[in-house]
Design a protein around this nucleic acid. Structure first.
Lengths: 226, 226
DNA sequence: CGGCCCTTTGACGGACGTCAAATAGCGTGG
DNA sequence: CCACGCTATTTGACGTCCGTCAAAGGGCCG
């Protein structure tokens, strides 16, 4: 969930939670790629918000099957359930090196209780998260591998664009193919085959941790059966 | 989403929204099976809550592919986004005849603004809905047809049990196989095959709009890879 | 009786998974 | 500088789960 109600982004996108004149000044943390930012069953008194880097929220079955529920970009709350509960209910793992800040949950709660207008902004983020969850279900339940992968990339493109993080048609893309597989409910092998086809047909170009969308119209039309 | 914060259920489970002494007394409506309760792009000034019967919230792609996002039982809010927005963002359709009551959104808003403790109960329902959405994504992304169908039935069993709507191991089950298919991302034909197998192996018995779970342990173990 | 919807069953096909081998990149340490 | 071990990616052969198509039967209701 994007922290739309965090104005005052600085260079590193460090969020400030604002209500009138009150501003929370959170702690800053840094973790390396592949490190866990929060665990399923641990309890946290704070709410982490990504400032820099990419992360993934996922759930894993006992037999190892894994589903990524969301990719987290700068400005995103690591787990919105942490706003109201000490448990995140899912694992959040850094994909790149990640910088994040932590807000004390009690302070956030007080802010909301004292300024009911914040409920409105909160509900907006909430609705956005619900829509994303519904879209994920539709993708996983009813779309083909080609559609799922194209939509994932297109979706990330839009979110990066909204953050001013596109360079023309090229975007940073730190995801490994196994990340794409875990997000789309596919296997890494099949992801490789589909991406190869996208390249062969001139839709995208894959560079070193980056993707360029060569034919935006054709590419977005793959996933736009809605 | 279940309306945990609606105390005062009467015989027909008609909800009353309570905050201190304030009680909203909503309008009552009835629709026949297969009728639309709310549409994707229409605007509503009220929030419908199911009192009686089953409904389904779904999204449909332009080419007809359909995904059911949730089944709604008595006590459930038809669409929680309607609490804060005039749009439900998905279609809600009656499965059986459905009785529901409507609360004016403005009145609910006032209640919440005037009693910030309601935020807490609201956040609980919100977290429950988020967990359900995550589970759906895991099911659709990473589980087999057998697991998905078994989990769907088991999930409904638990929700009915929480409402005191089980008769021993037997439950009302008004869903058609195409409903199960749309909820699990499968085809009706395949659903039929899996259900036949469940019956052949003595796991369940299917009667006239009802299901009996003959072997609860074995049955729940099918879906309990978590 | 006839039409409609639902379910069942079988044959067949296709999308995606599994397995395996080869290659490349990359950091580490000698 | 090279050897190495690890991870990621690619590609092909093959297998399987689930979809598609089709036909038949049953229940319900006009």
């Amino acid at each position: 969930m994007s922290l739309g109600w965090c104005a005052g982004l600085s260079n590193d996108r460090a969020p400030r939670l604002r209500s009138g004149r009150t501003v929370l000044d959170p702690d800053k943390h840094t973790v390396a790629a592949r490190r866990i930012i929060c665990r399923e069953r641990d309890f946290y008194e704070y709410v982490p918000v990504i400032c820099h880097g990419w992360a993934a929220a996922s759930a894993t079955l006992v037999d190892g099957r894994k589903q990524i529920l969301a990719f987290l970009l700068p400005g995103d709350i690591v787990s919105t359930t942490l706003l109201f509960e000490p448990s995140s209910h899912c694992v959040v793992e850094a994909i790149t090196a990640v910088e994040y800040r932590t807000f004390q949950r009690e302070e956030i709660k007080n802010l909301i209780f004292n300024d009911p207008r914040l409920i409105h902004t909160l509900s907006k983020s909430w609705i956005a998260e619900k829509l994303a969850a519904d879209q994920l279900a539709i993708d996983l339940g009813r779309r083909t591998a080609h559609e799922r992968i194209a939509r994932l990339i297109e979706n990330l493109r839009q979110r990066l664009a909204a953050r001013g993080m596109m360079r023309g048609l090229t975007m940073d893309f730190p995801l490994r193919q196994h990340h794409i597989a875990d997000a789309t409910g596919l296997t890494p092998v099949h992801v490789s085959k589909v991406l190869s086809e996208f390249r062969r047909t001139g839709l995208i170009e894959i560079g070193d941790r980056s993707i360029t969308i060569l034919n935006p119209d054709k590419f977005s039309s793959i996933g736009s059966t809605r």
